[in-house]
Nucleic acid binder design. Sequence first.
DNA 1: ACTAACATGTAATCTGTTACATGATTGA
DNA 2: TCAATCATGTAACAGATTACATGTTAGT
Lengths: 169, 169
Amino acid sequence: MILGFLAEGSLHGYELRRKMNELYGYAREISDGSLYPAIQRLIKSGAVVQRVENGRAAKRHTLELTPEGRTDLHQRLRTASGGNVTDLGRFMVILAFLSQLPDVEEQHEVLRRRLKFLEAPASFFYEGGRPLRKAEIQDVYRQGMLTIGKAASRAEIAWIRQSLGIAAP
Amino acid sequence: MILGFLAEGSLHGYELRRKMNELYGYAREISDGSLYPAIQRLIKSGAVVQRVENGRAAKRHTLELTPEGRTDLHQRLRTASGGNVTDLGRFMVILAFLSQLPDVEEQHEVLRRRLKFLEAPASFFYEGGRPLRKAEIQDVYRQGMLTIGKAASRAEIAWIRQSLGIAAP
DNA sequence: ACTAACATGTAATCTGTTACATGATTGA
DNA sequence: TCAATCATGTAACAGATTACATGTTAGT
């Protein structure tokens, strides 16, 4: 997220935190204690440079992405896998910055990985390795989980197919 | 999750991990290094007791929920808030065990908190504190985020309203 | 004068991740 | 006999959370 937002333009930490909280805060609030150490790690790795602005009385550290930082971002987007693809919240973060990947074919490759996950038979509950279907579950809230998951999945599959230019089967 | 699964019956760690991975593994894989220390913390807090089974050659520790553990689970479900309500993945875990709450009115109160969140105007991107609508966003993938989010939200609102016995507005 | 928002950090503690470490059982 | 699965843990390291710590600016 830090690399993604900085790829759109230089920011200082406070603005960055606000944007990060808007994008992801519904899932997990970004606190000072996690943001500033994360920025320091990126500075240490050479992905970000910090310039202290003198224009204001209050010290204000403008953060700028280096060419290495941009390469790092591209690599992270290109190789998105695991939870970054299967968890909706984390995939949304990938989606928010996917346009930063210069090659459209690489963008589509990421979408295809998400599509593959969505199209695989899945449940939250299994019996002998086999995903349980709604009719096999007694609990109303667990039935609801499948109802909700199915609706979300259908909508997303339709959108991805359309984005990739694939006809609905 | 540990308290929830143990509320349905005693299990040993390995089975517990499998069930946890089925329910939540799409988002984050449960590893031994996080599960076993978590179990030890629950034993220390008195929520869980461990009985070593002698029936098998391989040592097998059956985990059982104590009455205090059950009270703990109920309290966690009853007071679910923040990310546990706003993050879909975490809310799903709440939903999976919500029937464990003895009072139906308390179950509904949790659903109402989720409904309130879903019905509030929200986006992933804001301008001057105001959520941006799809038409105001240029990036196709960010438009997709809103498309997906809206569809998922609509389906979930409909299901919760139906569960609560509220007519569609 | 006071409050909210702006602005940046550190310290102690807790938790998660990854790799290591061990051993039994079951089926090919 | 070999591999997969069952079964339980620890150790080193990385990262997150919470509280602490400080100071400015703009509006009422």
